[in-house]
């Protein structure tokens, strides 16, 4: 009985559509690997201090990165922080930043956009002008201002990005609501005396959320980059925190090695940078695949 439930069939159908796309398979497998790494971090890289697993252990304070060795599989970066350990625990940081920011700003954006689009008129006008104001402000400057005001730290980075990120989702959500709110099934629900809130929750949001979700998925990657950039500037995670951005920042003086051996410190910059690129790429591929799968034009009719 459960096997034949139409909701399950629909899910299977959508899943089969998604997994026909090779780029989706690559994207999902990459993310699966990252998830395994994040979950299994204590096994892959047992922390030195149980209470503070996110602080990368380091032996010595030499500013010169060490090449991969038996002890440090991927070598060390400036300050003798273990790159392998940083990559493993940094995955958790990346997921935390990406998912929390996108989740938080999606909730705000979807709510604001739905209310503006559904009610229209003066409500729409006020909300969207507010969004315009937020949009007019330069993104990074605003984020940095927030962090300066709130204080340094990863949690504040997350908060600062989320407070600004929702503006994009609000606009996209509103646009997709505008086409939905005049559809006959919404009218029909009104005729049944169903409250606005319920109409929004049952008919409007489930049907209009997909474009926003797709953008949200793609943004998870780029937000990790933004957070990394802030770490790079020294506004994000505290020194020694397992964060890919910070690891790149640590290696910034060693992008090119000494004369005669320019590739000497390649591992210090390429490994954290490469992992970051893979992470962003994975989310973009997933976003692309979802866009194709949710495109109403290719849905069965």
């Amino acid at each position: 009985m459960l096997n034949n439930h139409p909701k399950l069939k629909e899910l299977k159908f959508t899943a089969s559509r998604i997994f026909k796309d090779p780029s989706a398979i690559i994207g999902f497998s990459l993310i699966a690997v990252f998830i395994v790494i994040a979950i299994g971090a204590p096994y892959f890289a047992p922390p030195k201090w149980e209470s503070r697993p996110y602080i990368m252990p380091h032996k010595g304070f030499s500013r010169m990165p060490e090449p991969p060795s038996k002890e440090h599989i991927l070598g060390t970066t400036s300050g003798q922080y273990d790159i392998y350990y940083g990559i493993i625990w940094g995955t958790r940081t990346a997921f935390r930043v990406g998912l929390v920011v996108v989740g938080f700003s999606l909730v705000i954006g979807v709510a604001v956009g739905t209310i503006a689009g559904y009610f229209g008129g003066i409500v729409d006008e006020i909300i969207m002008r507010l969004v315009d104001v937020v949009l007019a402000l330069p993104y990074l400057v605003l984020v940095m201002a927030f962090i300066v005001a709130l204080g340094k730290g990863l949690d504040n980075v997350i908060l600062a990005i989320a407070v600004i990120q929702w503006r994009n989702y609000a606009r996209v959500m509103r646009a997709s609501i505008l086409t939905l709110r005049d559809l006959d099934y919404v009218h029909a629900s009104k005729l049944m005396g169903i409250s606005h809130l319920k109409i929004m929750l049952t008919h409007i949001i489930p049907n209009g959320i997909f474009p926003v979700l797709v953008i949200g998925f793609m943004d998870i990657g780029s937000i990790v980059i933004t957070a990394s950039f802030l770490s790079f500037l020294g506004l994000g995670a505290p020194l020694g925190y397992a964060d890919w951005g910070q690891m790149v920042a640590m290696a910034r003086d060693h992008i090119i090695g000494p004369p005669g051996n320019p590739m000497q410190y390649w591992h210090a910059i390429l490994i954290p940078g490469g992992v970051m690129i893979l992470f962003v790429l994975a989310w973009n591929l997933i976003g692309d695949a979802l866009r194709d799968a949710f495109d109403p034009k290719v849905r069965r009719t």
Partner: peptide
């Protein structure tokens, strides 16, 4: 409210897909 009802023109958009 329930005494006044309506059937719409386009059956493809009158139901939540």
């Amino acid at each position: 409210r329930g005494k006044l009802q309506m059937v719409f023109q386009d059956p493809t958009t009158s139901m939540d897909p």
